[in-house]
């Protein structure tokens, strides 16, 4: 228990340092853009394919229940709300926690154990700014974009799912989707993905930056980065749902 509190304290201190370093020059724009490209562009196919399958599966699975109640016409409405509010952002965040979080943890961990972070320090570079700030900013800004993409692609998957057994025209499907969705569905779900992205980035960097015990430590960093950031995604999601519920935003 004591260890857990120490770990939480260390993560809080690491996060605090992020905010102090963020506004200090020198700004690493090139590295930030490189990270955005890596995080955004390289995760795009995986997120798109997964979101498409999720949209398809959720629609196929929901259809029999709605048919039983004679509410088949509600299928686009129900699917769009569940995908946009919850499934697409959370699935995107979990995929990114697995792909990006572990990548950052392993990359920084191996840089730590092979003294590349020290070499950076010796080369006149603040490794925290160059490695941590750029990556955390990259995940914080790119994961919401990926989530928007996941929303769109999963809704398209939902359209195909609705047409496997039944017949729903393209116009009817999208009319129902847009009639159902309001800002209160879309905005909170996008806003929470900024926090998902921040959590994934900061945990990956923290674990990598504090890696030790050689190559074994690198594996542990990657592994614990995924576990902790995935857990944080659910905790942040729970908090976000409570907030939207309390303020009646939906």
């Amino acid at each position: 228990m004591k260890k857990l509190f120490i770990e939480i304290g260390l993560i809080a201190r690491f996060t605090g340092r992020f905010f102090t370093e963020l506004f200090k020059p020198r700004f690493e724009f090139n590295e930030f853009l490189r990270q955005c490209f890596y995080i955004g562009n390289k995760s795009l196919p995986l997120v798109a394919i997964t979101a498409f399958i999720m949209g398809l599966v959720i629609t196929i699975q929901s259809r029999p229940t709605l048919v039983e109640f004679g509410a088949e016409a509600w299928l686009p409405k129900m699917v769009s709300v569940s995908l946009v509010r919850e499934i697409a952002p959370v699935i995107t965040a979990l995929i990114c926690a697995g792909k990006i979080g572990s990548g950052i943890g392993a990359e920084l961990g191996s840089m730590k154990v092979t003294e590349q972070i020290d070499a950076m320090d010796v080369s006149g570079t603040n490794p925290y700014k160059f490695l941590v700030v750029t990556r955390v900013m990259g995940t914080t800004l790119m994961i919401p974009l990926l989530a928007v993409l996941a929303d769109t692609v999963s809704l398209y998957g939902g359209y195909l799912g609705a047409n496997i057994r039944g017949v729903v025209s393209w116009d009817l499907y999208w009319n129902q989707v847009f009639d159902t969705l309001v800002y209160g569905d879309v905005m909170p779900s996008i806003i929470k993905t900024f926090f998902f992205g921040f959590a994934i980035g900061i945990i990956g960097c923290y674990k990598g930056f504090n890696s030790n015990k050689g190559t074994e430590g690198v594996g542990q960093s990657a592994n614990s980065a995924v576990v902790i950031s995935s857990l944080l995604v659910f905790i942040i999601d729970l908090i976000a749902v409570q907030i939207t519920d309390i303020f009646n935003l939906n």
């Binding site: 092979t114 070499a119 006149g124």
Partner: peptide, 29 residues
């Protein structure tokens, strides 16, 4: 540190950069 160089035991070459980029890094930084 411009006047004092350091050769690391593990070489500490940046894995994600080519030899040219590794050599240019301290100059640019």
């Amino acid at each position: 540190r411009v006047k004092v160089g350091f050769l690391f035991q593990s070489n500490a070459l940046y894995d994600s950069m080519t030899v040219r980029e590794n050599l240019e890094f301290p100059l640019r930084r």
